[in-house]
Design a protein around this nucleic acid. Structure first.
Lengths: 107, 107
DNA sequence: AGTTTCCATAACCTTGGAGTTATAGATGAG
DNA sequence: CTCATCTATAACTCCAAGGTTATGGAAACT
Protein backbone atom coordinates (compact mmCIF):
# COMPACT_ATOMS: atom_id res chain seq x y z
CA UNK A 1 0.00 0.00 0.00
CA UNK A 2 1.08 3.52 -0.71
CA UNK A 3 0.79 5.76 2.33
CA UNK A 4 0.70 9.55 2.18
CA UNK A 5 4.06 9.69 3.94
CA UNK A 6 5.58 7.43 1.30
CA UNK A 7 4.24 9.74 -1.39
CA UNK A 8 5.67 12.78 0.35
CA UNK A 9 9.17 11.39 0.83
CA UNK A 10 9.27 10.00 -2.67
CA UNK A 11 8.09 13.27 -4.17
CA UNK A 12 10.91 15.15 -2.48
CA UNK A 13 13.57 12.59 -3.33
CA UNK A 14 14.15 13.75 -6.90
CA UNK A 15 16.44 16.82 -7.18
CA UNK A 16 14.66 18.30 -10.19
CA UNK A 17 11.28 17.94 -8.52
CA UNK A 18 12.55 19.32 -5.22
CA UNK A 19 14.05 22.27 -7.09
CA UNK A 20 10.67 23.03 -8.65
CA UNK A 21 9.02 22.98 -5.26
CA UNK A 22 11.75 25.21 -3.81
CA UNK A 23 11.23 27.73 -6.59
CA UNK A 24 7.52 27.82 -5.91
CA UNK A 25 8.19 28.38 -2.22
CA UNK A 26 10.69 31.17 -2.86
CA UNK A 27 9.03 32.95 -5.78
CA UNK A 28 5.39 32.02 -5.33
CA UNK A 29 2.88 30.98 -7.95
CA UNK A 30 4.31 30.16 -11.39
CA UNK A 31 3.03 28.93 -14.72
CA UNK A 32 4.33 25.72 -16.26
CA UNK A 33 6.03 27.75 -18.97
CA UNK A 34 7.88 29.93 -16.48
CA UNK A 35 9.03 26.89 -14.53
CA UNK A 36 10.11 25.10 -17.70
CA UNK A 37 12.21 28.09 -18.84
CA UNK A 38 14.84 27.47 -16.17
CA UNK A 39 14.16 23.90 -15.08
CA UNK A 40 16.78 22.34 -17.32
CA UNK A 41 14.39 19.65 -18.56
CA UNK A 42 11.63 19.54 -21.15
CA UNK A 43 8.12 20.84 -20.62
CA UNK A 44 6.54 17.37 -20.43
CA UNK A 45 9.08 16.47 -17.76
CA UNK A 46 8.10 19.54 -15.77
CA UNK A 47 4.41 18.70 -16.12
CA UNK A 48 5.02 15.18 -14.84
CA UNK A 49 7.01 16.45 -11.86
CA UNK A 50 4.27 18.91 -11.03
CA UNK A 51 1.73 16.10 -11.22
CA UNK A 52 3.81 14.11 -8.73
CA UNK A 53 4.07 17.09 -6.39
CA UNK A 54 0.33 17.58 -6.66
CA UNK A 55 -0.32 13.92 -5.84
CA UNK A 56 1.74 14.40 -2.68
CA UNK A 57 -0.28 17.49 -1.82
CA UNK A 58 2.77 19.74 -2.10
CA UNK A 59 1.34 22.02 -4.78
CA UNK A 60 -2.03 23.25 -5.99
CA UNK A 61 -2.90 24.15 -9.55
CA UNK A 62 -5.15 26.87 -10.91
CA UNK A 63 -6.25 27.03 -14.52
CA UNK A 64 -6.44 30.39 -16.20
CA UNK A 65 -7.09 30.32 -19.89
CA UNK A 66 -4.64 28.01 -21.52
CA UNK A 67 -2.02 28.27 -18.80
CA UNK A 68 -1.84 26.48 -15.48
CA UNK A 69 -0.53 28.24 -12.40
CA UNK A 70 1.07 26.15 -9.65
CA UNK A 71 1.52 27.30 -6.08
CA UNK A 72 3.13 25.65 -3.02
CA UNK A 73 1.10 24.10 -0.23
CA UNK A 74 3.49 24.15 2.69
CA UNK A 75 0.84 22.59 4.90
CA UNK A 76 1.78 19.32 3.21
CA UNK A 77 5.17 19.59 4.89
CA UNK A 78 3.49 19.00 8.25
CA UNK A 79 3.88 15.21 8.22
CA UNK A 80 7.53 15.65 7.29
CA UNK A 81 8.12 17.99 10.22
CA UNK A 82 6.24 15.63 12.54
CA UNK A 83 8.23 12.63 11.39
CA UNK A 84 11.55 14.43 11.84
CA UNK A 85 10.58 15.58 15.31
CA UNK A 86 9.42 12.09 16.26
CA UNK A 87 12.63 10.44 15.13
CA UNK A 88 14.75 12.96 17.02
CA UNK A 89 12.67 12.64 20.14
CA UNK A 90 12.65 8.86 20.20
CA UNK A 91 16.38 8.95 20.33
CA UNK A 92 16.64 11.88 22.74
CA UNK A 93 14.16 10.09 24.96
CA UNK A 94 16.46 7.13 25.18
CA UNK A 95 19.33 9.45 25.90
CA UNK A 96 17.37 11.07 28.71
CA UNK A 97 16.49 7.64 30.02
CA UNK A 98 20.14 6.76 29.97
CA UNK A 99 21.04 9.88 31.91
CA UNK A 100 18.27 9.17 34.35
CA UNK A 101 19.56 5.66 34.81
CA UNK A 102 23.11 6.85 35.31
CA UNK A 103 22.08 9.51 37.80
CA UNK A 104 20.19 6.91 39.82
CA UNK A 105 23.18 4.63 39.80
CA UNK A 106 25.37 7.42 41.08
CA UNK A 107 23.49 7.68 44.33
CA UNK B 1 27.03 16.66 -8.41
CA UNK B 2 25.66 14.77 -5.49
CA UNK B 3 24.99 17.03 -2.52
CA UNK B 4 24.56 15.85 1.04
CA UNK B 5 20.93 16.97 0.95
CA UNK B 6 20.31 14.86 -2.14
CA UNK B 7 21.78 11.88 -0.35
CA UNK B 8 19.62 12.50 2.69
CA UNK B 9 16.33 12.81 0.83
CA UNK B 10 17.12 9.84 -1.37
CA UNK B 11 18.06 7.70 1.60
CA UNK B 12 14.73 8.40 3.26
CA UNK B 13 12.66 7.91 0.12
CA UNK B 14 12.63 4.11 0.26
CA UNK B 15 10.00 2.70 2.68
CA UNK B 16 12.07 -0.31 3.69
CA UNK B 17 15.09 1.86 4.40
CA UNK B 18 13.03 4.43 6.27
CA UNK B 19 11.50 1.64 8.33
CA UNK B 20 14.96 0.43 9.32
CA UNK B 21 15.93 3.92 10.43
CA UNK B 22 12.69 4.29 12.37
CA UNK B 23 13.32 1.03 14.19
CA UNK B 24 16.79 2.20 15.16
CA UNK B 25 15.37 5.46 16.47
CA UNK B 26 12.65 3.73 18.48
CA UNK B 27 14.51 0.71 19.77
CA UNK B 28 18.10 1.92 19.70
CA UNK B 29 21.18 0.05 18.56
CA UNK B 30 20.57 -3.20 16.67
CA UNK B 31 22.62 -5.87 14.96
CA UNK B 32 22.10 -6.65 11.28
CA UNK B 33 20.65 -10.01 12.24
CA UNK B 34 18.07 -8.48 14.56
CA UNK B 35 17.05 -5.98 11.92
CA UNK B 36 16.85 -8.67 9.24
CA UNK B 37 14.59 -10.84 11.39
CA UNK B 38 11.62 -8.51 10.93
CA UNK B 39 12.62 -6.41 7.93
CA UNK B 40 10.72 -8.50 5.40
CA UNK B 41 13.66 -8.62 3.01
CA UNK B 42 16.83 -10.68 2.78
CA UNK B 43 19.95 -10.04 4.84
CA UNK B 44 21.96 -8.69 1.90
CA UNK B 45 19.15 -6.25 1.17
CA UNK B 46 19.28 -5.05 4.78
CA UNK B 47 23.05 -4.64 4.59
CA UNK B 48 22.74 -2.56 1.44
CA UNK B 49 20.07 -0.35 2.98
CA UNK B 50 22.23 0.17 6.05
CA UNK B 51 25.15 1.13 3.81
CA UNK B 52 22.94 3.72 2.12
CA UNK B 53 21.82 5.11 5.47
CA UNK B 54 25.43 5.27 6.59
CA UNK B 55 26.45 7.12 3.41
CA UNK B 56 23.78 9.70 4.24
CA UNK B 57 25.11 9.98 7.78
CA UNK B 58 21.89 8.66 9.26
CA UNK B 59 23.44 5.71 11.07
CA UNK B 60 26.75 4.72 12.61
CA UNK B 61 28.13 1.21 12.77
CA UNK B 62 30.14 -0.51 15.47
CA UNK B 63 31.88 -3.84 15.01
CA UNK B 64 31.86 -6.31 17.87
CA UNK B 65 33.21 -9.73 17.08
CA UNK B 66 31.46 -11.02 14.00
CA UNK B 67 28.40 -8.84 14.36
CA UNK B 68 27.87 -5.23 13.40
CA UNK B 69 25.75 -2.96 15.54
CA UNK B 70 23.98 -0.02 13.90
CA UNK B 71 22.73 3.03 15.77
CA UNK B 72 20.84 6.16 14.64
CA UNK B 73 22.51 9.53 14.21
CA UNK B 74 19.63 11.95 14.51
CA UNK B 75 22.02 14.86 14.06
CA UNK B 76 21.88 13.99 10.35
CA UNK B 77 18.23 15.05 10.39
CA UNK B 78 19.31 18.66 10.97
CA UNK B 79 19.49 19.61 7.29
CA UNK B 80 16.07 18.07 6.76
CA UNK B 81 14.55 20.15 9.57
CA UNK B 82 16.29 23.27 8.26
CA UNK B 83 15.07 22.69 4.74
CA UNK B 84 11.49 22.17 5.91
CA UNK B 85 11.57 25.33 7.99
CA UNK B 86 13.08 27.32 5.11
CA UNK B 87 10.44 26.19 2.65
CA UNK B 88 7.68 27.07 5.08
CA UNK B 89 9.16 30.47 5.81
CA UNK B 90 9.69 31.43 2.19
CA UNK B 91 6.03 31.07 1.61
CA UNK B 92 4.68 34.10 3.40
CA UNK B 93 1.29 33.94 1.77
CA UNK B 94 -0.37 31.57 4.20
CA UNK B 95 0.40 32.46 7.76
CA UNK B 96 -1.99 29.91 9.18
CA UNK B 97 -0.13 27.03 7.60
CA UNK B 98 3.20 28.60 8.44
CA UNK B 99 2.37 29.12 12.09
CA UNK B 100 0.95 25.65 12.37
CA UNK B 101 4.08 24.14 10.92
CA UNK B 102 6.49 26.20 13.00
CA UNK B 103 4.60 25.48 16.18
CA UNK B 104 4.89 21.79 15.48
CA UNK B 105 8.61 22.10 14.88
CA UNK B 106 9.26 24.17 17.98
CA UNK B 107 8.19 21.48 20.39
C1' DA C 1 41.86 -28.74 13.06
C1' DG C 2 36.67 -28.37 10.96
C1' DT C 3 32.17 -26.23 11.21
C1' DT C 4 28.87 -22.87 11.85
C1' DT C 5 27.33 -18.17 12.29
C1' DC C 6 27.29 -13.25 11.00
C1' DC C 7 27.91 -9.79 7.82
C1' DA C 8 29.39 -7.69 3.38
C1' DT C 9 30.08 -8.00 -1.40
C1' DA C 10 29.50 -9.79 -6.16
C1' DA C 11 26.70 -11.04 -9.94
C1' DC C 12 22.50 -10.95 -11.78
C1' DC C 13 17.52 -9.92 -12.80
C1' DT C 14 13.75 -6.89 -12.94
C1' DT C 15 11.12 -2.93 -12.37
C1' DG C 16 10.06 1.88 -11.42
C1' DG C 17 10.67 6.18 -12.95
C1' DA C 18 12.97 10.18 -15.18
C1' DG C 19 14.04 11.65 -19.55
C1' DT C 20 12.88 12.23 -24.43
C1' DT C 21 9.82 13.25 -28.88
C1' DA C 22 5.31 13.38 -30.83
C1' DT C 23 0.74 14.65 -30.40
C1' DA C 24 -3.90 15.80 -28.73
C1' DG C 25 -6.90 19.36 -26.58
C1' DA C 26 -7.84 23.78 -25.27
C1' DT C 27 -7.43 28.67 -25.58
C1' DG C 28 -5.82 33.13 -27.52
C1' DA C 29 -4.44 35.88 -31.49
C1' DG C 30 -4.84 37.54 -36.33
C1' DC D 1 -11.82 30.38 -39.60
C1' DT D 2 -6.93 29.60 -39.31
C1' DC D 3 -2.87 29.51 -36.98
C1' DA D 4 0.05 29.85 -33.03
C1' DT D 5 0.66 28.99 -28.04
C1' DC D 6 0.23 26.43 -23.64
C1' DT D 7 -0.23 22.29 -21.11
C1' DA D 8 -1.14 17.35 -20.48
C1' DT D 9 -0.80 12.77 -22.14
C1' DA D 10 0.97 8.87 -24.90
C1' DA D 11 4.63 6.00 -26.40
C1' DC D 12 9.09 4.97 -25.97
C1' DT D 13 14.12 4.49 -24.26
C1' DC D 14 17.28 3.99 -20.71
C1' DC D 15 19.33 3.65 -16.35
C1' DA D 16 19.37 3.74 -11.29
C1' DA D 17 18.29 0.93 -7.75
C1' DG D 18 15.92 -2.61 -4.96
C1' DG D 19 15.36 -7.40 -4.91
C1' DT D 20 17.33 -12.03 -5.18
C1' DT D 21 20.96 -16.09 -4.69
C1' DA D 22 25.72 -17.29 -4.19
C1' DT D 23 29.89 -16.61 -2.01
C1' DG D 24 33.87 -14.68 0.52
C1' DG D 25 36.00 -13.50 5.00
C1' DA D 26 36.12 -13.16 9.74
C1' DA D 27 34.93 -14.67 14.31
C1' DA D 28 32.94 -18.10 17.59
C1' DC D 29 31.90 -22.88 18.73
C1' DT D 30 33.16 -28.09 19.08
Amino acid sequence: METQTDLLFRALADPTRRSLFERLCREGEQTVGALTATAGVSQPAVSKHLAALKAAGLVADRHEGRQTHYSPRTAALGPLADWTKDMAQFWEGRFDALEDLLSRMDQ
